[in-house]
Computed example of a mutant assay.
Amino acid sequence: MIAVQQAVEAPSPLSVPSNAPEHCPGTESELAGKAAACAGCANQDVCASGQTKGPDPALPFVRERMSNVKRKILVLSGKGGVGKSTFTAQLGWAFSADDRVQTGIMDVDICGPSIPTILGIASEQVHASSSGWSPVYVQDNLGVMSVGFMLPSSKDAIMWRGPKKNGLISQFLKDVDWGELDYLLVDTPPGTSDEHLSIVQYLKESGIDGAVVITTPQEVALQDVRREIDFCRKVGIRVLGVVENMSGFVCPNCKTESQIFKPSTGGAKKMAAEMGVELLGAVPLDPRIGKSADYGVSFLDEYPDSPASIAYMDIIDRIKQILGDA
């Protein structure tokens, strides 16, 4: 197994090393190489000289790897707990249901990697070969990469600042042997911070086909989602649309729907109209979704007749239409 401490290999002389000091000010800061935290850092002289402000040396390698990936889709939300990872997993399973479609899922939620559990591969490990790190495969045409595979224990916390997070994301993009992919789905943490900026930076030249933004109906979630959409516009990412998760509760027995998270301000439908983005659809809350995630099985396969599964498939079909893949 590749230990987390070794997960970010030694960088080139012009990049911030993986063992950057805990309070590293970052290479773009005026204090780079000059702050008290920089004392003793292997890259202190390089940072102080300003050489790190040049092009990231990883970019050509990322561009080469990504040249084999047809579509790159980010799954975003400013709010935590709205179902990004669950949606990413369902999207991956739906795409890979076609044996001809090669799909990859990259989990960059470094501090909360839940994708391995949701996909039923939490006990697997990452292996290295001459061509790079090998993804962990759920099935022949669905590969996954996550820091969750590198933890000594599922209880271990990852306490990294920006430089280390950026280094690992860089490696996921340039060192993972994804092969030829039709879709690369990127599951992100909440917010608009380090991980998001790193993905945009590294994929800028390769191109991001768009982002799917996940929310729940209540205003406390919509506020953060509006910021996420604003982030996408500021960095030039196309918003494919918004998905409203937990949109009502459907009883598995009687099929009656009731509102658990009441859309007091109009929900995702009104927010999407105000922000000028498409509402891709609404997925009702089904307790079996959580059960499927805990057991690492496909909800779409287990409960194909559920209103939630039907909503998922309608949304996924719409994403394909928008991308021109339908």
Rank of each mutant, 00 (worst) to 15 (best):
S123D: 15
E195N: 03
A48E: 07
K262S: 12
S85W: 07
F95Q: 13
S258V: 11
D230T: 13
K291S: 09
L151G: 02
W178A: 02
L76D: 09
I118W: 10
P252L: 06
R318G: 06
V212W: 00
L222E: 05
L300A: 14
P263W: 06
V108L: 11
A128R: 12
I322E: 04
P284D: 06
G241N: 04
C254E: 03
E244K: 04
I2F: 04
N19A: 05
F61Q: 14
G54T: 04
A7D: 02
N43P: 03
G104V: 00
L323R: 08
G162H: 00
H23A: 15
A268N: 03
T52E: 14
I121W: 12
N141Y: 08
L280W: 00
Q201T: 15
Y295I: 11
A89G: 11
V297M: 07
V283Y: 01
I169K: 00
M1Y: 08
D156I: 01
W133E: 06
K84I: 04
K53Q: 14
E244S: 06
I289F: 08
V144Y: 06
V46N: 09
Q321K: 10
N68V: 00
F172H: 02
G80Y: 09
K291Y: 07
F61I: 05
I310G: 02
Q90G: 07
M66P: 01
P284M: 13
G281A: 05
H127R: 10
P189S: 07
Q171W: 06
D194V: 02
T27H: 14
P304C: 13
V250W: 00
G236I: 05
Q90H: 12
I73T: 08
L173G: 06
V243R: 01
F172D: 03
W93M: 10
D305Y: 05
A20L: 03
M275I: 04
F299A: 02
M150N: 02
I214A: 01
V69T: 14
V212C: 08
G248K: 05
V8W: 06
S67H: 11
R63K: 12
V220Y: 03
T27M: 15
G241P: 02
T52C: 15
E124R: 13
E205H: 09
I105L: 14
L279M: 12
F61E: 15
L91R: 02
S146M: 13
R71N: 14
S131N: 14
V235Y: 04
A42L: 10
D305K: 09
V186Y: 06
H23F: 15
L203S: 00
S298R: 01
T188W: 01
Q90W: 00
G112F: 08
W133L: 14
T27C: 15
H127K: 10
K234Y: 02
P13Y: 08
D175Y: 04
C24Y: 11
T216E: 13
S29Q: 09
I2V: 11
D107Y: 11
Q139M: 09
V136C: 10
S146W: 10
